[in-house]
Write a protein that binds this DNA or RNA. Sequence first.
DNA 1: TAGTGGTCTAGACCACGGA
DNA 2: CCGTGGTCTAGACCACTAA
Lengths: 229, 229
Amino acid sequence: MSITYREVKADILRQITQGTLAPGSAMPNEVDLAASYGCARATVNRAMRELADDGIIERRRKAGTRVRQNPIRQVRLNIPIVGQEIEELGATYRYALVHGQAEPAPNWLRARMALQRDDRVLHLTCMHYADGAPYQHEDRWINLSALPEAEQHDFSEVGPNEWLVSTVPFTDAQISFHAVQADATIADYLDCTEGDALFQTERTTWLEGRTITFVQLTYRRGHRVTMQY
Amino acid sequence: MSITYREVKADILRQITQGTLAPGSAMPNEVDLAASYGCARATVNRAMRELADDGIIERRRKAGTRVRQNPIRQVRLNIPIVGQEIEELGATYRYALVHGQAEPAPNWLRARMALQRDDRVLHLTCMHYADGAPYQHEDRWINLSALPEAEQHDFSEVGPNEWLVSTVPFTDAQISFHAVQADATIADYLDCTEGDALFQTERTTWLEGRTITFVQLTYRRGHRVTMQY
DNA sequence: TAGTGGTCTAGACCACGGA
DNA sequence: CCGTGGTCTAGACCACTAA
């Protein structure tokens, strides 16, 4: 065995970072590269395919492969379960159910979750603590038409997120991040001052086209989401 | 050709979502799967490898393959160039350099960028507008020891981000998201009220171990970052 | 229409790591 | 030890698309 796909990939990447292969320039085709590296085309193909997945190069049939002008900058962001997130900080996790009630969906939520007129939802409010201090406020709505068993479930010990993850094994989701000002209620829950800037995540989750749940997660003051690439 | 790796992947995914393959359960090995699908092992391998990359299954040599207990939830987040981001909204982009000056690095920045005591930095303040309205405030520091040519460059027409992307082709970076309260200066730039909650991104960028640049991007009120998975 | 990447195959050897 | 996934090979056919 002469050379691995990892070595080919690393070598090409080196040429790009060192400027030997300039942004926008065309690269040799796979057959030629395989010949020059002395390996099979499949090996070159895998290296190139991964570089394309990473957004470094751009491939089109017939047109060939080019170094991207502006490498696509993308990050893999892990969406942690809050309990695990807190324990990874080395803190003790505590969960509390503040409020839970089945009710008709309010109008703004019907629009947001694309619900029918008479759909009912389970509204849960929870708090998550790290070493006894407020960490995250969770405001969640579960579509009872899609997930009727939620109404019978007891959320006083295990949070709805954990329960949903183990009950609905795989889903699509839309996530958004933004900043909100703490109102009096949230400030009280998160032990901060009314008007403080807080980081908030919203997530809507679908299973095969049906909206399962919508959640607003508001974090304690100063929370950061961090990524590398 | 009997079956594609995409079909194998889709079929396995279907079995997981429908509960035929329960979380934590072991899967057949590649040879057996290939036999049952009537395809080559390489085809099954590619399907399984992608599922593993997606965080759906877990593979270990000798131990075999299992369905993950809690599928890793991860998103690919695109980091757009602000001009492109604004034009994708269908708005007209305008850039303005507010301030630019080379100066000794202040202490907090030296710590943040891991600079030497006498390193100098180029401090740039810029504004990005969408249809004439403030969109993003950019506060950037460039390490002149690592990138001396920045000092001679004219940033009055092209923003530092665009220039950096085309000048320093590939880098490592750390990104963080959080919420800040607008101070008087930022409120003025972004045409909002002092105390408003604003979404802020911080990014530090390295090239082969050397810190290149640190930037704080503060967005207009109500900005959201959205992702799917 | 022809060149390029996309994919499958059958077979092989190897590295890892549980038993 | 030895079963499992990881990878490479040489060859083949195909799908897409720029010219």
